[in-house]
């Protein structure tokens, strides 16, 4: 409970900054709107205003700007309350089957995220097990895994979509694969570290019992890697969500949070973009929170927390 005050302070500071930023950002539009409504503005000519900064316009037309920046239809930076209203309208007020429901779009993205996360985690764990147990894999897989992550996902995502489309895969699976592409990496890195975390003494102990490799894995390496795995899963699930959203962008998808951002940018619907962004952030925070909860329960049951 003691953390409430610092957290609230930060939230208030962020919203305060956001509201303040709205003033100069939307000043040009507010002045233009006022001019069209017949209110006198300084300077009066649009061409003279073009080169002025938002701050200058704000200073010269303080009353006009402070009155006009909060309710614009296509603001450069929507005010928090505009985003909140949009979020409310597109979640609670819409049926979830509606094409305008963020819950509907959120679920499309979430399902690809979860499938991709499952594939990525499974693949990551398998690769890590191989790397730890097989010297050839140790030397060969890691450089490729690292190289795969140096390619911008925005460059490779369209390729994956196109290639998979040509073999008849569309919709969920290609997006899930892009998610998996992003999420397997932290799992590999964390699991390799975790599976190698037992020290020489603990490995010697099992040798004195003449334990097999698989017994060493199940009884020592795997349980020892759990704290590392969960740290990786938290990064992995957030990366999965990014992958799913990015997977929706290059296809001109019409469904999903990425599609909402894309159509929002086509039509200058900044409020829609921001509400999709915020929805994605909420989904990501929730997913990471769920993993943290599972982590706490698992480690507690293992006597590690």
């Amino acid at each position: 409970m003691r953390s409430v005050l610092p957290v609230l302070t930060v939230v208030v500071a962020i919203f305060g900054f956001w509201y303040l930023a709205v003033l100069p950002m939307n000043a040009h539009q507010a002045v233009l709107d006022a001019e069209r409504a017949g209110v006198g503005v300084i300077p009066a000519e649009a061409s003279a205003r073009r080169d002025l900064s938002g701050f200058t316009l704000l200073a010269r037309n303080f009353d006009v700007v402070t009155a006009g920046v909060w309710t614009q239809e296509r603001p450069i930076l929507p005010a928090p309350h505009q985003v909140a209203v949009e979020l409310w309208d597109t979640t609670v007020e819409k049926k979830i089957t509606s094409k305008r429901s963020l819950v509907f779009h959120g679920w499309i993205t979430l399902s690809a995220t979860l499938l991709g996360f499952a594939i990525g985690t499974g693949l990551g764990i398998l690769l890590a097990v191989g790397i730890v147990h097989n010297r050839a894999m140790d030397l060969s897989v890691m450089p490729w895994a690292i190289a795969s992550q140096t390619i911008p996902i925005l460059a490779i995502a369209p390729m994956i979509i196109v290639v998979l489309n040509s073999v008849g895969l569309q919709g969920l699976v290609p997006k899930a694969i892009i998610s998996a592409y992003l999420s397997f990496f932290p799992v590999v890195v964390g699991m390799v570290k975790g599976l190698r975390s037992p020290d020489a003494m603990q490995l010697d102990l099992l040798r004195t019992y003449n334990a097999s490799k698989s017994e060493t894995f199940w009884k020592l390496r795997l349980p020892a890697s759990m704290p590392y795995l969960f740290a990786s899963l938290k990064i992995g699930i957030a990366a999965s969500l990014i992958g799913a959203i990015v997977g929706e962008l290059p296809t001109g998808a019409v469904r999903g949070l990425g599609a909402r951002m894309l159509t929002g940018s086509y039509y200058g619907q900044t409020i829609q973009i921001w509400s999709a962004l915020l929805a994605a952030a909420i989904v990501a925070a929730t997913l990471v929170g769920i993993i943290a909860l599972i982590q706490r329960m698992t480690l507690k049951r293992m006597g590690l927390a």
Binding site: T208, Y209, K219, P223, G303
Partner: peptide
């Protein structure tokens, strides 16, 4: 399994109880 070996550090598995740690060689054997 002719011998039991005791190392310089206890090296108990933190995720196993004391009983579980003692059971470790017994499970393997």
């Amino acid at each position: 399994r002719a011998y039991g070996y005791v190392f310089q550090a206890a090296g108990l598995y933190p995720w196993r109880t004391i009983g579980g740690n003692i059971r470790l060689p017994l499970e393997i054997m």
